[in-house]
Amino acid sequence: MAAESGKIDPMHQFEVTPLGGGFNLGGHEVVFTNSALWMVVAAITLGLFMWGGMRRQLVPGRWQAAVEGFTGFISSMMMANIGTEGRRYTPYVFSLFMFILFCNLLGMLPLGVLGLHPFTVTSHIAITGVLALISFAIVLVVGFWRHGLHFFSLFVPHGTPLPMIPIIAPIEFVSFMVRPFSLGLRLFVAMTAGHVLLKVLSGFVINGFNAETLWLGSIVSVLSFTLMIGISALELLVAGIQAYVFALLTSLYINDAVNLH
C-alpha cells in the first residue's frame, strides 16, 4: 500500500545513512552516520542541560532545580533499591537514564517540518542490546568480584525446599540469562512501535488529503491527525517511562549482584 500511494514507507525513518568520515578499525569500516550524529546531538544537549545546573547555588534557580530533580530522582532510586552502596553505581545508571531519555525525546522532535530527519537512536536493537549487555556485564563482574562462586546462590532463592532446587535453579538461571535480551528488546520495541504507528498515521493524513473522493479522505485525515496528537503525547510519556524502566531494572539487577537475594 505504502509503495503505490505516495512513497510513504514507515520503516524509512530507521534507515542508517552514512555522513562521511570513514576509517578502518580492526578490519571494519567505521563511518560517521546519522545514528552517530544523533547520539552526539543527545550527548551535547545532555551536556548543556547538565552544565546549566552546575551553578551550585545554595538556593537553586529553575534550571539548577530541574537538573537536581533528575540527579535526585536517580540517586534516590539507587538508594531505595540498593542501599548506601548504590551511590557507587549512580554515575553509570544516571548516564544510562539520561542518554536513553535524551535519545528518545530527540527522536520525537518534529524536525521533519524543517526538512531534517530526526533519528531515534534507541529504536535500534544494536544500540539497546549493547547498553543492556553493558548492564549485564556490570552485574556479572560485581557479582563474582564481591561474592565469588557464592554468586551462584542467586539461582536458589532463600527458603527453597531441598527437593525443589533441581527444578527452581534452572528456571532461575534461564530467567537470569534472559535479562539482557528482555532489557534491550523492551526499549527497542517500544520506540520502534511508537514511531511506526506515528508514521503510518501521518501517511493516512497525507494520503487522505490526496484521495480522489476528497470529502471522505478529509474525514480520514482529520481523524488520523487527531489521533496522532494523542499518540504523540503518549509517545512522550513512553519515552520517559522506557528510560525509567531501563534504569530501574538495571538498578534492580545490580542490587542482585551487590546484595544477592
Binding site: T33, S95, L131
Partner: peptide, 15 residues
C-alpha cells in the same frame, strides 16, 4: 561496526 563504535565512544564520553 559504526553503530557500536560510535555508541561506545559517545556513551563512554557521557559516563
Amino acid at each position: 561496526a559504526s553503530q557500536l563504535f560510535w555508541l561506545l565512544v559517545v556513551f563512554a564520553g557521557i559516563y
